[in-house]
């Protein structure tokens, strides 16, 4: 058994915990790519574990991961329907921004993640909700892309606009991913 002294050095170099009202993280989740959604959800769940008040505002392409995995065609007009056909929603159907290879890339990535016991985006999103992360869908994007509240998973906050997101972001650490 050995004591790990290097860690004590690390501990002394870390900043004092902020805590309280000021300890806030707001992530603007703009991308729907697997390789961006994944770190977004890792950061959100970790922040919640650290006691940080955490909000994720899902906007534009970032809204699609919130679509239920079994929902296929969404939208009211042909353009919105076409969009959902070409850009399927749900955490099980995310694409990589590079090395996608018509879905082979994400499949391999998921296998690697399983082998290394890395939680999947689906699991992390569920955990985030359970841990009290505010998951806010962008109302404007929902209207634009033709996504209704019923198309989206349970456990989300009320859809809101930029004002709500920016108010939450006041004094918070913010990330745009």
């Amino acid at each position: 058994m050995e004591e790990m002294t290097a860690v004590d050095e690390l501990a002394s170099s870390l900043p004092e915990p902020v805590g309280g009202e000021d300890d806030k993280l707001v992530i603007f989740a703009w991308s729907g790519d697997l390789d961006r959604v994944w770190p977004t959800l890792i950061l959100a769940t970790t922040a919640a574990a650290m006691g940080t008040r955490t909000t994720v505002f899902f906007t534009f392409w970032g809204l699609f991961p919130l679509v239920k995995n079994d929902v296929r065609i969404t939208g009211e007009n042909w353009m919105q329907k076409m969009l959902s056909l070409l850009n399927r929603g749900g955490t099980e159907h995310l694409k990589l921004s590079k090395m996608n290879f018509v879905g082979a890339g994400p499949a391999m990535m998921k296998k690697l993640a399983r082998d290394h016991k890395v939680a999947s985006p689906t699991e992390l999103l569920e955990m985030a909700g359970e841990m009290g992360v505010d998951l806010i869908p962008c109302q404007m994007t929902m209207d634009l892309m033709g996504l209704s509240r019923d198309d989206l998973i349970d456990g989300l906050g009320e859809p809101a606009g930029a004002t709500t997101a920016l108010l939450a972001a006041r004094g918070a650490t913010t990330l745009f991913i």
Binding site: M1, M4, V7
Partner: peptide, 19 residues
């Protein structure tokens, strides 16, 4: 390093860490 950082952030006390 993450447990050290997490304890620092949350105020929980890391009593011991061994390998």
């Amino acid at each position: 390093p993450d447990f050290t950082a997490w304890c620092r952030a949350t105020g929980n006390e890391l009593l011991e860490q061994t390998r």
